Amino acid sequence: PEDLERKVRELQKNGVSPEQIEKILRRDGVDEREVQELVKKVS
């Protein structure tokens, strides 16, 4: 979803590592495939 992507970009802009971003997304209940997609987009 659009807002998730925005969140991921925000986190990355704040210097959060892709690994941390993955953890955060998983903790928020984002589905694994979605997590991978989002992280791939920003890394």
Rank of each mutant, 00 (worst) to 15 (best):
P1T: 12
P1Q: 12
P1R: 14
E2D: 12
E2Q: 12
E2T: 13
E2K: 12
E2S: 14
E2C: 14
E2A: 13
D3G: 09
D3S: 11
E5R: 11
E5N: 05
E5M: 13
E5S: 07
E5W: 15
E5C: 08
E5F: 12
R6N: 09
R6L: 09
K7E: 03
V8G: 00
V8I: 10
V8M: 03
V8C: 04
V8W: 07
R9W: 08
R9E: 03
R9N: 03
R9V: 04
R9K: 07
R9P: 00
E10R: 13
L11T: 00
L11C: 03
L11P: 00
L11S: 00
L11F: 05
L11Q: 00
L11K: 00
Q12W: 15
Q12I: 15
Q12F: 15
Q12S: 13
Q12D: 03
Q12E: 05
K13I: 07
N14H: 11
N14F: 10
G15W: 02
G15D: 02
G15T: 01
V16F: 15
V16S: 06
S17T: 11
S17N: 04
S17V: 03
S17A: 08
P18V: 14
P18I: 15
E19R: 09
E19Q: 10
E19M: 07
Q20D: 14
Q20L: 07
I21M: 04
I21S: 00
I21G: 00
E22K: 14
K23I: 14
K23Q: 13
K23A: 14
I24K: 02
I24E: 03
I24Q: 04
I24F: 04
I24H: 02
L25T: 00
L25C: 04
L25A: 00
L25W: 00
R26D: 01
R26F: 05
R26K: 07
R27Y: 05
R27C: 12
R27H: 08
D28G: 09
D28I: 15
G29C: 08
G29N: 03
G29E: 02
G29V: 02
G29D: 02
G29H: 02
V30R: 03
V30G: 02
V30F: 14
V30Q: 03
V30K: 02
V30H: 12
V30E: 03
D31S: 14
D31K: 05
D31H: 06
D31F: 03
E32I: 08
E32Q: 06
E32K: 04
E32P: 11
E32D: 06
E32M: 07
R33W: 10
R33L: 08
R33Y: 07
R33H: 09
E34T: 15
E34W: 14
E34H: 11
V35L: 14
V35Q: 01
V35D: 01
V35P: 01
V35H: 01
V35G: 02
V35C: 04
Q36P: 02
Q36C: 10
Q36A: 09
Q36G: 05
Q36I: 10
Q36W: 06
Q36R: 12
E37N: 10
E37C: 09
E37R: 15
L38P: 01
L38M: 10
L38H: 03
L38G: 01
V39R: 03
V39N: 02
V39E: 01
V39L: 15
K40N: 11
K40F: 08
K40T: 09
K40R: 11
K40G: 10
K40Y: 11
K40Q: 10
K41M: 13
K41W: 11
K41V: 06
K41D: 04
V42Q: 04
V42S: 05
V42T: 07
S43A: 12
S43I: 15
